[in-house]
Design a protein around this nucleic acid. Sequence first.
DNA 1: CAGGATCCTATACGATACTG
DNA 2: CAGTATCGTATAGGATCCTG
Lengths: 118, 118
Amino acid sequence: MTCQITDFKQEHKKEMRAVQDSMDVLNGKWKIAIISSICFYNQRRFSEILNDVEGISNRMLSKELKELEINKLITRTVLDTQPVTVHYQLTEHGLTLKTIINNLTEWGIAHRKKIIEG
Amino acid sequence: MTCQITDFKQEHKKEMRAVQDSMDVLNGKWKIAIISSICFYNQRRFSEILNDVEGISNRMLSKELKELEINKLITRTVLDTQPVTVHYQLTEHGLTLKTIINNLTEWGIAHRKKIIEG
DNA sequence: CAGGATCCTATACGATACTG
DNA sequence: CAGTATCGTATAGGATCCTG
């Protein structure tokens, strides 16, 4: 025998946890922007991302990229050039964020309008 | 005369800015979770949100709610009860985040699986 | 109940300089 | 080029107590 109201609450608890799980991975000032940069260009180099993401320092970029790699959202490929070149790409799993990125892009534009127009 | 490559870059710059705009509004450890709480229940009281969002302090909840109100994502309604009751709801504009919330919920579940399974 | 005030700490982040 | 190391600051956030 199940309780409707209890099920309802349990469901929301699950949802709340899921949302927090997402945000734990995407936290910080730069994660989404970095992913976006790689996502928009499919493949991107360290210095290119550094340019795409306005205001980020190399220190932070380095740190965030590591975390994203640990979370299996991106891959890091060192090319045997002189000097070294490094490519970052989204993994298959990272690519599943594409929808969210696109939504955030659209929403950002809409929000800017909303705030400016008042 | 327009340059294809320049247009391409400009377009990405715009997208990058839009994404950052979104994240500026949704930054911090709790914003999305708070919005989710209100979103899932349509309408929610201070203490209820405090319970929904695991780990948040009343200080932060208060602060974040204010920012969300300033950004016109939620409305605050004081009910004339004893003691005072306050309802928070998403504005029409805030409701446009519903898609993103849902995506983040689904993604959070998928990500947890991915990380646990390895 | 819905917060505000105060105090405190951790850490996120920036700036700069350095290296293979 | 793609980072690492070091240092310093700001602020995000927690804990606790207080109030209309």
